[in-house]
Design a protein around this nucleic acid. Structure first.
Lengths: 345, 345
DNA sequence: TCATACTATTAACACGCGTTAATAGCCCTT
DNA sequence: AAGGGCTATTAACGCGTGTTAATAGTATGA
């Protein structure tokens, strides 16, 4: 290992004091440094390949120059999240532009309290983005009180935390209204996750609202709760089909889940969209490659990540004048998995 | 913000010195502490909600208690990597078990040298896992020399770095041999990425070897180089089809790319597998949900991540007696996208 | 009784950097 | 020549923890 180069080394090499080195390299303008000295210092730093020690800097300046991405799910579920790449891509982009680092953590559902506080106190990060929060998350209140900058990706009713999200209710409503316009009246629903996940609950509410607004009969027995992945989608759809519920369309609140559901429909010998129309949610990349192409709701995942990150950075700079809740628009993408209801004799 | 609790506070509260607190909380056995005192300290720490400051600890102990995941791709490509969730899930699992943090970084192709060294010197991390390295990566040699623990996810010929990978050549060979056994003789190939990416090159070599071993004619004009995503797959397949190359099967070295290729085949009015058989690579979750289900090579992505992490942790503990290169097994998963060649009149 | 060995604890320094308060150098005015 | 007001620079302290070398205390053996 090459011997570590400290700012003292740079100072010696340039023939100035360590303080001067710090001023030059951090562009401290309160103390004017002559251009000649500054050049000497910069040159020395480059010559020696000086890289400031992050820990020491964090300790002295009281800021870690890093943010945390906190996921409230177990690795098992993280591994199957089709959105993660887009989220991460968006975050990494912004984070790097601002010279920050990104620390990824997950907390076991139930352990949130301890972990949020630990992360806060440990000061390894200056702020955090909480992904996929659950309404029953006990730690979020504590997070509000501790005044560490935090942004929710997603929304928790009643929480005072800053958040960036889509309007899940409206989006789900739009999806179901599309089916209604196509003449469907018995429309099933498979959520993306269990109800404590806000997004799942909101999409369910949107589904319900669309049904009721249209004067159709809402039937709870047409609803199933999936578990993020395609496997659960297959399972829930099978359950719907096995029960002879006589529906002609289904709203599936997640594309991943929808793919599983589609497989179940095919395995039952039914055709999409001739026998059953299906609308997804998310517009993950694969949605346009499956057969038939999936009609779905497009979520600007990357923008959500970017906006979250920008917001967090502003909070970290003490700028609190922002909107507490940012809502990003979604779009219904009509493809081939939905069709007019064909009345059968 | 609650006032930060330092180890001094704990010491005062417990009526001992800060050193004792440190010894107790870090289980330093060289200096024996009486059980009574230890209990007093632990109790005080709990009472006050003491969480050690990560930066200070890192500075003093010369170890950051964190590892880095370095991706040599731009966020644009990161956003479309279907493997990322599995990798991340695997890493997070192991990382947490060992009380470490995970820092995610990306380096612009071409900027590797600077970034690897910066990360090394900054000491924000104790070791790093480099993902999807390229053969033309100039920074890896520097990484070898700097003696920071590092593990490659993937393999670079001629590199002395520790690595965890699958046998890409063998796996590709198995995929193509499957097609050959089905009677195909004109077999096209679309790689997952450009040649400088080792995995792309190795899969290409496997393809070539299988063709030649079987005594078939190798034809370079049947090869295209894709770019990770489905879009490029669509494009490359279209190029193959437009050129009237008369092939009956194709080996696509990435499922994502394969999905695009499948769409192109359908858009050309051809059927899978009746007109063209297709084998993918990766077995991403969607592979079993597309129509027809994709025959592909299964990669143990999560295990790769876990093994990489375990290996890295051992390196960080100074245990160098490990295998330099770990190779994990792959498996050909035969589904519905491949079929016997039907001789047309 | 005294030296010895061992246990339990602590004072003090190091880690590398940011930053305030103080100092040295210099030109200009009176 | 002396003071005044700049500008450029630095000594010195603090951030919170790990760790070594030294100290106080206590039991053991002759």
């Amino acid at each position: 290992m090459k011997k570590k180069v400290t700012s003292q080394d740079v100072a010696d090499y340039a023939g100035v004091s360590r303080t001067t080195v710090s001023f030059v390299l951090n562009n401290v303008k309160r103390f004017s440094i002559s251009p000649k000295t500054a050049a000497k210092v910069r040159n020395a730093a480059k010559e020696l390949g000086y890289v400031p020690n992050a820990s020491a800097r964090a300790l002295a300046s009281q800021r870690a120059k890093a943010i945390g991405l906190i996921m409230t799910r177990s690795p098992e579920y993280i591994a199957t999240d089709p959105f993660l790449p887009q989220i991460l891509g968006g975050l990494l982009d912004v984070v790097k532009q601002n010279g920050l680092g990104l620390l990824v953590e997950w907390v076991e559902p139930g352990q949130q309290l301890r972990t949020y506080l630990e992360l806060t106190r440990a000061r390894q990060i200056d702020g955090m983005i909480v992904m996929t929060p659950r309404e029953d998350d006990t730690g979020l209140k504590a997070l509000e009180e501790a005044e560490i900058p935090a942004v929710l990706m997603g929304y928790i009713p009643g929480s005072n935390l800053y958040s960036v999200d889509i309007d899940n209710v409206q989006a789900a409503k739009a999806a179901v209204e599309h089916l209604i316009e196509l003449g469907h009246e018995r429309i099933a629903c498979i959520t993306n996750a269990a109800r404590p996940y806000t997004s799942a609950n909101q999409r369910y509410e949107g589904y319900k609202a669309a049904i009721e607004n249209a004067g159709l009969a809402f039937d709870e027995s047409l609803v199933r709760y999936a578990d993020f992945n395609g496997h659960s989608g297959y399972d829930r759809m099978k359950s719907l089909l096995d029960n002879n519920l006589n529906f002609t369309a289904v709203f599936v609140a997640s594309d991943s889940v929808a793919f599983g559901a589609m497989a179940a429909i095919r395995d039952a010998g039914l055709r999409i969209p001739e026998d059953i129309s299906i609308v997804g949610f998310d517009d993950i990349p694969m949605a346009s490659y499956v057969t038939p192409n999936l009609t779905t709701i497009q979520i600007p995942a990357k923008e959500i990540a970017e906006q979250s990150c920008h917001l967090l950075i502003q909070l970290m700079q003490g700028d609190l004048s922002q909107n507490r809740a940012i809502t990003l628009p979604t779009q219904l993408i009509i493809r081939q998995s939905t069709a007019h209801l064909e009345r059968r004799p």
